[in-house]
Computed example of a mutant assay.
Amino acid sequence: MDWMLWIKAAVMGVVEGLTEFLPISSTGHLILTGSLLGLSGDTIKVFEIAIQTGAMAAVIWEYRRKLWGTVAGLGHDAVAQRFARNVLIAFLPAVVLGLAFGGLVKAHLFKPVPVAMAFVVGGLVILWVERRHHRHFGERDLEGTRRARVETVDDMNSLDALKVGLVQCLALIPGTSRSGATIIGAMLFGFSRKAATEFSFYLGIPTLMGAGAYSVWKQRAGLSWSDAPMFAVGLVFAFASALLCIRWLIRYVSTHDFTVFAWYRIAFGAVVLLTAWSGAVAWTA
């Protein structure tokens, strides 16, 4: 048994779960954490994608009543049918662009320095969107006294879903943040902060579970049963930490904006770029 590898897998799982739903890029954090832990190679790249499934399992568990109600109502409930259709519409752009450009992105951008640059750029975008949002809604948005155009996920139409699906494709660039792209993009399109956050959760289920399954299947020849314990540890820790993060984030967005995450992204990205430039840290792919 390689206990040190299991400990590293647990650390990666915790990092995945805590960062997947925050607008700070779980993929970017996994790439940087893996570099610091000395984890590299094709198996680790598959591992980083596969453990996202654990975080999505936490969403399924937390929203099991909503999801089960949707499945049960598909045959007769218009609200359930519209919700399922919107998730499907939003999911499709990532499938098309991911299959077309996923390999190219992994070959050239899954590296610490490009990730750090995306951290900084993404942080600046969040600051701009939040400033714009506050000019439009003021503090009333956080208090819930001024309604957004899309107040809940059930208020969405097909065009709303397509727009969110298109901005999710920006997350093909590691360091951008899938949740950040979908949440901040949805807010630009008139979603309330809570509706944007919850739809990002739901959209992540087919997107990330599909990506994880596809990655494992595509790289199956290079995997072996000896890798299973590492994957299992990562999945379990990703599930547990993601469950805590989901519950915290929904409470947080009811009274706070995402500005703190923007400054975190900028500071973290700047530190990585500075240490890479100075040679203080030997960041590796």
Rank of each mutant, 00 (worst) to 15 (best):
F258T: 08
M209R: 11
G279N: 07
V216E: 04
G190T: 04
I184Q: 08
V253I: 13
A267L: 14
K218G: 13
A276W: 01
K194N: 15
P206A: 03
A186L: 03
A267S: 13
V216L: 06
Y214G: 06
R220C: 02
F268G: 09
G190H: 03
K194T: 15
S226H: 13
T259G: 15
P229W: 04
A242H: 07
Y214D: 06
S241Q: 12
Y214C: 02
W263S: 12
R251M: 10
L223I: 00
I184E: 11
W263F: 09
V281W: 06
F191Y: 12
L273C: 06
L274M: 11
M187Q: 02
R193V: 04
A213S: 13
R251S: 12
T182A: 10
C245D: 10
A196S: 10
S215T: 07
T259P: 14
S226P: 07
Y252D: 10
A221E: 13
F201C: 00
F201I: 01
I250R: 06
S224F: 11
A232S: 15
A262D: 09
V216I: 08
M209C: 12
I205P: 10
A186V: 04
A213N: 07
Q219T: 12
W248Y: 08
S254V: 15
W277R: 11
A213V: 13
G210E: 05
A221H: 09
V272P: 05
A221R: 05
S241L: 08
S215Y: 02
D227A: 02
R220A: 05
P229C: 02
R220H: 05
V272L: 11
T259W: 12
T182N: 08
V233Y: 06
T275R: 00
A262I: 05
G234N: 02
A211V: 07
R251T: 14
T259S: 15
P206C: 01
T259N: 14
V260F: 15
G204T: 07
S241C: 10
K194M: 15
M209D: 14
I246P: 09
G185E: 05
V271E: 09
F201G: 01
V233M: 13
L249E: 02
F201Q: 01
L188S: 11
A280L: 15
L208D: 11
F201H: 01
G185S: 05
F191M: 08
A238H: 03
T197R: 04
F237P: 00
I205H: 03
G185A: 02
F231A: 11
P229H: 12
L249S: 00
Q219M: 14
G279E: 04
L203F: 02
M230C: 14
A267D: 08
F261R: 03
F189T: 06
I184R: 01
V236C: 03
Y214A: 05
S192R: 05
H256A: 04
A213W: 07
R193K: 04
G279Q: 08
G212P: 00
G212K: 00
T275A: 01
M230E: 15
R265M: 11
Y252S: 13
L249I: 00
W248G: 11
G190K: 06
R193N: 04
A280G: 13
V260C: 14
T207I: 14
A270L: 15
W263R: 09
R193E: 06
G222Q: 08
P206T: 02
L203K: 01
I250A: 12
L223P: 01
L223A: 00
A280K: 13
F268Y: 07
G234K: 00
A186Q: 01
V236F: 04
L274W: 11
W263N: 12
S278E: 10
L203C: 05
A211I: 06
